[in-house]
Design a binder for these strands. Structure first.
Lengths: 225, 225
DNA sequence: CCGCCGCAAGAGCAGTGCTCTCTTTTGTGG
DNA sequence: CCACAAAAGAGAGCACTGCTCTTGCGGCGG
């Protein structure tokens, strides 16, 4: 039993080592990760890497999951303060700070998906951590009476939102969940815009502008149209 | 003279043909465009393509410029209606519709930039057409007294915004320009989120949700925090 | 009419993902 | 403790990529 786990542990360590080197390559070279280059850095034949990852896509998927988890963990740990706007703004800055520190990993998870873009089901768990944090903050603010529900939403969208609300933030009004998702999308858009160069030669006071935007997003939640 | 222009015209036609085939490849295979495959489709040697584009990056740059121009032209042509929110919402839907029809080209211009790729200055002109349209709409609404200016913004961000405002939308209050840019970023974020699969298994009533979001963005402009 | 220059073609280099076969290592069950 | 099978690594090889270089062809300008 313990004997069998020796093999497994060595294998896990090797897998981690590969991912570490791959992450380093990702940080320098960008998304076009070369399996052979990683193997060279590890001093092993490229074919040996295939014992651990069936394909380059599988390695990338592992990197994506790790990136989601790193971001999710950072954001979850950053939740603090009291009162709705501050808690939300804290999350926004945590997301932005992580993205600025790990731009290529951000691009990996929130940029354009690579060719086939088949997201395995393993990724959805880590992927939703950030929006779940936002949902929790908004839900708590709603329960505390800090934010109004706003006008109900009907139709198919209403159904979708009810479904999402009861699964992700039970007790939170669906229309509020909609505004939370919109704020999250605005957050991701703002970070991507800054990171992908959409603001180049336009706005240099990035942090201030980001803060302004996210205050607007918070206001959009606190004060529905 | 006419002779010289014959050469030039043939060359331009060949260039267009390459770009057309490249665009087709882009639409099917995604962003990892193969110059050799394009050459094969054209029945020519891969080395011949280099007579027209010095590198794969240069071809991609041309595609990017074309995509920006196609989107910009579509959006400019779609501006209609009267009154601020409707005009803005029309632009939003024009952007989304174009993106849904040309997902890979959207990914090319608003997705993660390809590694090591530096946007040449030729791209900035076409790139800013959409935000200029939004700026014009907001500026006109401001001139017509349809939207308030909101509280002034100081500091470095205020300087940036004043600079942008006087160059892109003279006479429009800088703080309003900030909200216009924020709305544009939210727009891009919403389209990317939908296109890149961030809404998968969550919200199926995409158009309705998009409309809701953009109504929120419009309200953010009409009614500053 | 000739020469020249733009154009195309092909070979070639270095790199890639991935597969196959072969060898070595190594944990493990008896 | 030891033989063995399973796991791991190595290396060659295939098809592909971007890009360069050299060579030949042909239409255009003088």
């Amino acid at each position: 039993m313990t004997a069998a786990s020796i093999r497994a542990r060595v294998r896990a360590e090797m897998t981690d080592e590969i991912k570490t080197v791959a992450r380093r390559h990702l940080a320098t070279d960008g998304a076009n990760l070369s399996l052979r280059a990683v193997a060279r850095d590890l001093g092993m034949a490229s074919s040996a890497v295939y014992r651990y990852f069936a394909s380059r896509d599988e390695l990338l998927t592992a990197m994506i999951i790790d990136a989601y988890d790193a971001l999710g963990g950072t954001v979850e740990a950053a939740v603090s303060g009291t009162g709705f706007p501050d808690r939300f703004l804290g999350v926004c800055h945590a997301v932005r700070d992580w993205a600025l520190a790990n731009p290529h990993e951000w691009a990996l998870i929130y940029g354009s998906p690579v060719p086939g873009y088949q997201a395995p089901t393993d990724t959805v768990g880590p992927a939703i951590r950030v929006i779940l944090v936002i949902g929790r903050i908004v839900g708590e603010a709603s329960a505390a009476g800090e934010v109004p529900a706003g006008e109900p939403i009907g139709g198919r969208l209403g159904d979708d939102l009810r479904y999402v609300a009861e699964r992700a933030a039970p007790g939170t009004p669906p229309q509020l969940v909609a505004r939370a998702i919109a704020a999250w999308i605005h957050l991701c858009g703002a970070v991507s815009a800054e990171l992908f160069g959409q603001l180049n030669n336009t706005i240099e006071a990035r942090r201030e502008f980001f803060e302004l935007q996210m205050r607007g997003a918070a206001a959009m939640i606190s004060r529905p149209a």
